[in-house]
């Protein structure tokens, strides 16, 4: 990893937009400082030789098991936990 990336408030604000997570100015300030410390510590990975090593997305090879694509009875109401409904539909915010 090189030093080309500066961890600053602007970057944290950008990430918060991508993550759709509103942060207060205090949080931006605090996380900026902590991110620097944490990411610096994570850089110890640079010392590991991983040339030609495949990434492990899972701890061991498991193959997905699929069942037959047959309809089975559905006995619960997907809308029962929402407060935002209109008839048989979920109601969401405006899409701009």
């Amino acid at each position: 990893m090189s030093d080309q990336w500066t961890i600053d408030r602007g970057l944290v604000e950008r990430i918060s937009k991508v993550a759709r997570l509103e942060l207060t100015q205090d949080e931006v300030e605090k996380f900026t400082g902590q991110l620097k410390v944490i990411l610096e510590a994570f850089r110890e990975l640079d010392d590991v030789d991983t040339e030609g090593v495949e990434p492990s997305f899972h701890p061991q090879e498991l193959s997905n098991v699929l069942r037959e694509d047959e309809a089975t009875p559905w006995n619960w109401d997907p809308l029962e936990n929402t407060e935002h409904r209109e008839g048989r539909h979920f109601k969401g915010p405006r899409i701009q």
Binding site: F31, V48, S56
Partner: peptide
């Protein structure tokens, strides 16, 4: 915030994929 950062374009190889390769070493 941290998790989103390590997956973002430009950082993904250096953090996320590197971590997955080190995981192979650990295994």
């Amino acid at each position: 915030i941290l998790g989103t950062f390590t997956r973002m374009a430009g950082y993904r190889d250096a953090y996320y994929l590197k971590a997955l390769r080190v995981r192979t070493r650990v295994i």
